[in-house]
Design a protein around this nucleic acid. Structure first.
Lengths: 353, 353
DNA sequence: CTGTTAGCGCATTCAC
DNA sequence: GTGAATGCGCTAACAG
């Protein structure tokens, strides 16, 4: 069943069927009705591949993520899908699983399917691959790491905003020894978060002790290791800010195993606000980097490139704000009360022994 | 840049280029080399839409889920993607977000893109939609709810296996008052789990008190509500088995708020083994329904339909086993020791007051 | 073994 | 306002 079948049955030409389906206004209402009747009766669905072939637009947007199972991404994928449906697009989802080969294949697959644009949420991509895509004039949008070139947009995350809030929140709770567990410092976004922390501390005149800055790896295990390191420090921190939520969850788990209570003995702040953060016990205070908003910006960026031919060349920057979400993993510093401090010391000694 | 361009530059016909690229063995190695050289030099990627159009096979498998953000799905999507890459397929991911309209659109999108098969992981689908798909001879695979008809396969989950293990595990830990928090009983899979629980209890001669069976809704909130109900019962349960992990997480959270310790005061078992289960404090003992395995079966089912034309008509059933994964949320029943029981009673009274 | 040719299903000229 | 004809990029007959 194809467009010709419809044309025959409606006693019009295929051109008229095509026009009707595409809602070209110049078609006679009478004929249109006849066409629609047949279309609905037969349950005719136009072939997208054929349309794409002739129109040169596939109405597919690619989305490259590092791992779908990374809790940061499901919300983004869902939002992206919602937008795709709304705008009559399809989503081509691809994951690199941290494998350069897979990244290359992702790009190849995008090109073979002739996507109309690609959102790259994998915090970095080889120049040659960007070149492959741009050579074919595929609009691109990155987060943070987008090169300044025509046809590619960039979403700039305001790490400083939320992290400053977090630091000041902790300071207001009378924490002064605040530790920071970073992400892998090969990641630009991790470096940015760490820098934001250091600046935020400096802004309010707090020292950041070197031994309180630990390099993690954005995993739960990394968070667990980090807390262990922090426990071996002479004067322990009373609060820990983490470069992402999974790290904070790791810290929380290890704290539990050592009988350190969150937030009574240790205040904890994450980053990202993945959904799981709400499910933790206690619910995690964290800096929110809205995944919905991120997806929105990315989709709009691609759409802008596609829809407007004239502007499509301009590099554009979008801003993604971050903000602190206070839940239950932060409290007044234990050390502010001598009694509590003593109690805590006793507990820690007995447990870590 | 298209196949003709390559043909011209390699001084062969387009047919030869096509054959070379598709690795038809009868092509002269010399010519093939010439073609490959040009292909690589120009970075030529064949147009999949065109291929699909002429071959009648899109090399796309559809995957319909209820919500991508449901923690049960990301692992499945990832595995499905991995398999797709391996077999040179693409994944068309679609979510219904519990909206019949969206479900309808999903089906429509699948058909318009001419997918070669669809895996439906949304626990139910209208007959008319199944009809739409089958009318176009699209192979289908369902979980549990697949109709017995040619061209559609079904993955049958062995709920009983894992749930029996869970119940016997709890019994071995000397629990006798075991509660069950079900899912929404409109869901076939939820009903199956509940039935499996009841049978497993009966098998070992344990009574299942009516007031210890609570209908939940497979969400954290549902789990929280369920525990509340269970706390109001005359003789409280010492263990709770939940129809899914999110429910168990809700129970765990509410227990925490009431000062009920897991597993010392209350043993807790989930179902599904979503990744988050490992991240809980304490890590959740749960019945594993391997998401990787599920994805594998689904993909293979579709592949079987597509690859073999003769067998493609036969309805096939696949089995997905379940098994208990013991972690830290279960322990010997507190009530087995009079002393502990008294202690627990005191705590509960003071907290719930 | 290779090249020529005819569609795949559709949108879009261009005459009418 | 409508229809006949052309071609999007590719594969599959067929003839050579």
């Amino acid at each position: 069943m194809d467009i010709r079948e419809i044309a025959r049955r409606a006693k019009v030409s295929t051109a008229t069927v095509s026009r009707t389906i595409n809602r070209v206004p110049t078609v006679d209402p009478l004929l249109a009705k006849r066409v629609w009747r047949v279309v609905n009766e037969l349950g005719y669905y136009p072939n997208r591949q054929a349309r794409a072939l002739v129109s040169g637009r596939s109405r597919i947007f690619g989305l490259i993520v590092s791992e779908i199972t990374n809790p940061f991404f499901p919300e983004i994928v869902q939002s992206f899908e919602d937008l795709a449906v709304q705008h009559n697009y399809e989503l081509l989802l691809t994951s690199t699983v941290h494998d350069p080969k897979r990244m290359e294949m992702s790009v190849r697959r995008m090109i073979e399917r002739r996507v109309d644009g690609v959102a790259i949420l994998t915090f970095g991509m080889e120049d040659s691959l960007i070149g492959d895509l741009r050579f074919r004039k595929v609009p691109l949008v990155f987060v943070d790491v987008g090169p300044r070139m025509p046809g590619v947009s960039n979403i700039r995350v305001q790490y400083q905003e939320g992290i400053r809030e977090a630091v000041q929140h902790l300071a207001a709770l009378r924490h002064t020894r605040i530790a920071f567990v970073s992400g892998p410092l090969a990641l630009r976004s991790a470096v940015a978060r760490k820098a934001a922390f250091e600046q935020s501390m400096q802004e309010i005149g707090l020292k950041v002790a070197r031994e309180l800055i630990i390099e993690g790896d954005h995993t739960m295990k990394g968070g667990m290791r980090a807390l262990l390191e922090l426990l071996s420090v002479r004067e322990r921190p009373t609060a820990v800010l983490c470069s992402n939520d999974m790290t904070a969850i790791g810290v929380m788990r290890e704290a539990f195993d050592y009988g350190i209570r969150v937030p009574e003995d240790l205040s904890l702040v994450g980053f990202d606000d993945i959904r799981m953060a709400q499910f933790m016990i206690p619910p995690l205070t964290t800096v929110q980097m809205s995944q919905t908003e991120l997806a929105n910006l990315a989709f709009q960026a691609l759409l802008n490139h596609v829809e407007s031919d004239s502007l499509s060349l301009k590099h554009k920057e979008y801003i993604l704000h971050t903000t602190l979400v206070v839940r239950k993993s932060t409290a007044i510093a234990a050390s502010s009360s001598a009694e509590e401090k003593a109690a805590k010391a006793r507990r820690l000694v007995s447990r870590t022994a």
